[in-house]
């Protein structure tokens, strides 16, 4: 494996890890349920996306042929992540999770 590919893989892994960390920081720092919901959606899109891309580059470079599993992983993640976020948000509205601003009555139904 040559130096350029090693560098690309390393930076993608670091980028992914950084965004996963930032997602967790958001989860810890943000004040209420709805704002905290934004952390995990971010971690799955860019964080996991970058790591999966790193895996694709690494295995394409070290093994024969292209490594395409990772694309399938990304597709499934991008389809399912909004659904789980949506379900969480809806459940929270249903149970009237406490929220910092006062507009919850407008959006809840």
């Amino acid at each position: 494996m040559n130096l350029v590919i090693e560098f690309v893989v390393a930076s993608l892994i670091l980028l992914g890890a950084a965004f996963a960390l930032l997602g967790s920081v958001g989860l810890a720092r943000l004040p209420d349920f709805f704002t905290r919901l934004h952390g995990p959606t971010k971690a799955t899109t860019l964080g996991v996306g970058a790591m999966v891309l790193a895996s694709a580059v690494y295995f394409t470079a070290t093994q024969q042929g292209f490594s395409l599993h990772e694309i399938a992983v990304m597709v499934f993640l991008f389809i399912t992540a909004p659904v789980s976020a949506h379900l969480l948000a809806k459940a929270a509205l249903h149970r009237s999770a406490p929220e910092c601003s006062e507009e919850i009555d407008d959006a809840g139904k």
Binding site: F34, L37, H38, T41, K42, T45, L46, F78, I79, A81, P82, V83, A85, H86, A89, K90, L93, A107, K109
Partner: peptide
């Protein structure tokens, strides 16, 4: 549309 809104960080579609 709501999936795209959820995937772009900063907005989560609720309903």
């Amino acid at each position: 549309l709501s999936s795209i809104v959820s995937l772009t960080p900063g907005t989560v579609s609720v309903d």
